[in-house]
Amino acid sequence: MIHWKLAVIMAERNIKNNELACLINMNPISISKLKVRRRFTRIDESTLNALCKALNCQPGDLLVYEEDKPDTK
Rank of each mutant, 00 (worst) to 15 (best):
I29L: 07
N17A: 14
W4T: 04
K69P: 00
K69Q: 11
P70E: 08
Y65H: 03
D71M: 06
E67W: 02
C52S: 10
K16I: 09
S46Q: 10
K33F: 07
K33H: 13
L6F: 03
D61R: 11
N14I: 03
W4R: 03
S32H: 13
C52K: 05
R39L: 09
Q58K: 15
K73M: 04
K33A: 14
L55S: 04
I24T: 14
L20Q: 10
M26A: 15
A54D: 06
L34S: 06
I15K: 06
K35H: 10
A21E: 11
N27F: 04
I9T: 14
Y65V: 01
R37N: 13
E67C: 02
L63D: 01
T72L: 09
T41E: 11
M26V: 15
L62K: 08
C22L: 14
S30Q: 13
F40I: 03
C52E: 05
N17T: 10
S46K: 11
N25Q: 15
E67T: 10
C22M: 14
R42H: 08
E45M: 12
R37W: 03
P59V: 03
L63F: 00
N56S: 13
E67F: 01
K33P: 01
I24L: 11
K35F: 02
V8R: 12
N56R: 12
A50M: 03
V8K: 13
E67P: 00
K53S: 12
I31Q: 04
I43E: 01
N27E: 12
T72C: 04
C52N: 13
I24V: 15
N14W: 01
N56W: 00
I2V: 12
A50D: 10
L23N: 12
L34F: 06
A7S: 14
L48H: 03
P70D: 05
L20M: 13
P28R: 13
C22I: 10
E67K: 13
M1A: 12
L34A: 08
N17H: 14
D71K: 08
R38V: 09
E19P: 04
R38D: 06
C57V: 11
I43D: 01
L6T: 07
K53D: 10
M10I: 12
R39V: 11
K16N: 06
N17G: 06
F40G: 02
L63Q: 02
W4I: 04
F40T: 03
C22N: 15
C57Q: 00
P70H: 01
N18W: 08
K35L: 03
N25I: 07
C22Q: 15
P59E: 00
L23G: 04
